[in-house]
Design a protein around this nucleic acid. Structure first.
Lengths: 138, 138
DNA sequence: ACCAAGTTTGGACTTTGTCCAGAACAATAT
DNA sequence: ATATTGTTCTGGACAAAGTCCAAACTTGGT
């Protein structure tokens, strides 16, 4: 459960009609829409919303840390509202479906000191690649 | 050492002048050029090479499995000739520098059966994010 | 030398995303 | 209620990254 609106309201973020529909459209589990999909779905509820506003809002949400940008495998960025629980992604090589998965352990711990090249490491992204059940039969 | 040309010759890949310069330009350790950088450098040696050819060649190399596409954090894709040794990437959040790092263990093993959603998993990409020594002083 | 197959070219096109100036919209003060 | 001020939204122009395509060119085999 990600309750994005809840969190935004709690932060005192100015909630306009446009921002509300963007947040509503993004909310949920295993949701990973592209900016264009967000624009299309937001447009169903608020026909006049502009692409620029969708992009601006998504970027603000990312900056706030309430939404994650994920797994551009060459195509458009996708946005994941589930930014509060550490998780990784499992992506179907055929159809592009994304599932959230939850690691047992912290992958940062697996990186030896000698392999850090003096970097100050702040995060890690793990993307598992595979073929989903639907695409295996094809 | 990645010896890309060596490997390509061994596979009997038709080695034209254009393909040769692309492969030469890519060769090395910790090399992660964008398609545009490859085009620019290839152009120094073979001025008439076209962008389309560079893209075609890079995509073929990726398909062959001799080169990896990496870490488009919103910017252009980068190409890594070191596709034969399992390794992961460490990316500077400030300047975008990429270093290759070598994990101790196979991260796929860390994904529980119940978290696989029926996928047939074939690979994993791990990207560590941080700030490199040069950018820490800034 | 000729043919067939594979490669390269350059330009047009598509997709994804940013930028900007002006219009519209809150929220607050008068 | 009205004016003021700062923020947000809009739509269109723009830019970057990459794909597509038909025509021209190479290459290897006979």
């Amino acid at each position: 459960m990600s309750d994005l609106l809840e969190r935004l309201r709690a932060r005192g973020w100015r909630l306009t009609a446009q921002r509300r529909v963007v947040a509503e459209v993004l909310n949920g589990d295993h949701v990973h829409l592209t900016a264009d999909e967000v624009h299309a779905r937001a447009g169903e509820r608020l026909p006049e919303i502009s692409r620029a506003t969708v992009y601006n809002t998504l970027n603000e949400l990312v900056t706030l840390g309430e939404v994650l940008e994920v797994g551009t495998d060459g195509r458009a960025k996708r946005y994941d509202p589930n930014a509060r629980t550490a998780h990784q992604h499992l992506v179907c090589r055929v159809c592009g479906t994304i599932r959230d998965v939850h690691p047992d352990c912290d992958p940062i711990a697996g990186l030896a000191e000698t392999e850090r090249f003096g970097f100050d490491i702040s995060g890690v992204e793990v993307t598992f690649r595979g073929v989903c059940p639907d695409c295996q039969s094809g």
